[in-house]
Design a protein around this nucleic acid. Structure first.
Lengths: 350, 350
DNA sequence: CTGTTAGCGCGTTCAT
DNA sequence: ATGAACGCGCTAACAG
């Protein structure tokens, strides 16, 4: 018992396939009589349109592909959640594809998307991967995220990582911290590098020596860095981690080592994943609105898909300025230099 | 400049489309000479097969759909991550569809999948939604998850929620707790109800009166429940929350109210989401291996898709027995009734 | 208002 | 070994 096709319905309703198609998705005038007969046939045959066939005919899949480097952690889940709500609002489906480490995998993933999606959202924090993606996509609309290529001339959304990092350091300075360390993200990752650059810039600006520990965005590396920092002779009194996961890892390591936060060391993360508000002390961080950004990305891509003109005219690189969210982990302990707790402050423009 | 089709390649290589198709995906003998010419043409034309057209022709999409009630929280992100790795390993794509509250939305979502996927994984914790899904899918293979229908005769994977709940309560009893409360999940949710049933059963077994506070699986409801419990005259000394998110919410509320954990109240959650290990005190919980279960689900579905015989013979309902993971939140404080910390114990079979 | 027909891009017999 | 032709299920011109 195979699924019924439009022809089965037509035969059963004693009409042509065109008429069936019309009652299904056309505003074209159709006699109420035939409309009823068709509906009746659809009902009894339990007919459901074959979207694959429809896609081939209309060359529209109502689906967008999302290429991700990874799927681990709350950052990505929030991102997908944001895209998902926007997608269902626009009547689109979402096909996710992750774990694309090297360039080769990314290109293969993109190729396999052809004829399957109407557009692509590509998250590629590695050099060239973004442009590569845009090229490989052929005529498919592509929206780049966090590609680091601010002036690529391609539709993209990027977070002001450098500016956010500067804000983080300035915040730590404002509560009297001077020995500020940084846990960096993985080398080669454009976002990690931009955050490192911002940190270095702000430290230099303040005339302070930088103190960088290597990490890889994962919680474990943050923990290792925390252990490292806790036992140093020149233990820092401030810490800016390149993302929240590492900040949390460091926080736990410091606490286990008996270092108090924020008294002994104030900690700032990046992303504002939900977890940041749950741990104790709650984590000061830079909120980039992950879910909202994901939704925004999908909306822009859909606009490009729906309107070919938008696809060519949209050459904008939208920049998301992260917002400082002060929580317990960096609450001022020195009354003379206090910062209002839990009051989000806008990040300065850069 | 539109994308090249197989015909363009054929013309450019001076061969028929059949030959092009052969070099692409057939082991059929093809002259090395023509093979080279075709490859050459593909290269210069930057030809990429149109998977939509291929799907229509082969009636195989190499894609599976995942229908979820929600996409919020680490539970679902872990689930998708597990499915994603299994999918890419099997050469399949993943199309996710969430936010399906009522039955109507679920049915609509399933309908829109026809002709787009080769099979469906449906997570529907509401009554009938599961069977509904299986019916609506027509001839599509469907794998049900956490449907609560143990004996539906349909391929499914369900967690032994009742058994896990019993284990949780028995654990609390084993460390000397007697006034054990439960934060329940949303009414109508089969998983929540099974966990509640297990709690009630274990309490009755121990001859203790139940104490249930209503929740909805979200962190906020756990927090509210925590506030409630903290101020009660008969404040409990043990707490079993229907999932980790609520357990964490309750934990924070209790701490803010000055109630110590585990000294004053021991807490146990359910799921073992990553967050459970990060908070302090770390959370004792029942691990169901969310990512692994997701991967397993996808593998079974793919088996059904690849082998029609499997699709009919596979009528098994795989049961996942959650494993107790003891962490700080329930570490025995009474030396005479200690439980080894951080040593996972197998859940008893039921 | 309705039916016929030609594609959409590709896989696949069936001849040659 | 290779090519011509048909079909997958549906939409959209074009006639009638």
């Amino acid at each position: 018992m195979k699924a019924a096709t439009i022809r089965d319905v037509a035969r059963h309703a004693q009409v042509s396939v065109a008429s069936v198609s019309r009652v299904l998705n056309s505003a074209d005038a159709v006699t109420e009589a035939t409309r009823l007969r068709v509906m009746q046939a659809i009902e009894t045959l339990r007919y459901v349109p074959h979207s694959g066939a429809r896609s081939l005919s209309t060359s529209k899949t109502q689906t967008v592909g999302v290429i991700l480097p990874d799927l681990y952690g709350e950052f990505f889940s929030e991102l997908i959640r944001g895209m998902d709500v926007a997608a269902r609002r626009a009547g689109y489906h979402l096909i996710v594809s992750s774990s694309h480490g090297d360039t080769e995998e990314v290109s293969s993933a993109i190729r396999s998307m052809r004829g399957r999606v109407d557009g692509l959202i590509v998250l590629s924090p590695h050099i060239d991967a973004a442009n590569l993606a845009a090229n490989l996509a052929g005529s498919l609309p592509v929206l780049l995220m966090n590609s680091g290529a601010v002036d690529s001339g391609r539709p993209s959304i990027i977070v002001d990582n450098r500016g956010g990092a500067v804000t983080a350091v300035e915040h730590l300075l404002s509560i009297g911290r001077r020995r500020i360390a940084h846990i960096a993200g993985p080398a080669g990752n454009l976002e990690a590098e931009a955050r490192l650059a911002g940190y270095l810039e702000a430290m230099a600006q303040a005339g302070l020596p930088p103190m960088v520990v290597q990490g890889d965005f994962m919680q474990a590396s943050g923990h290792a860095a925390g252990v490292n920092l806790a036992t140093r002779a020149d233990r820092p009194d401030g810490l800016f981690a390149a993302n929240d996961m590492m900040a949390v890892g460091a926080l736990l390591a410091l606490q286990d080592a008996g270092v108090r936060c924020p008294e002994d060391i104030a900690v700032v993360g990046f992303d504002d994943i939900p977890l940041a508000a749950f741990i104790r002390p709650s984590l000061t961080t830079l909120r980039s609105g992950v879910a909202e950004t994901g939704a925004r990305a999908l909306e822009r891509l859909v606009a490009m898909v729906d309107d070919p003109r938008a696809a060519v005219s949209d050459t904008a690189c939208e920049i998301v300025r992260p917002e400082l969210v002060v929580r317990q982990s960096s609450t001022a302990t020195n009354p003379s230099q206090s910062t209002p707790a839990r009051t989000p402050a806008s990040a300065p423009a850069h």
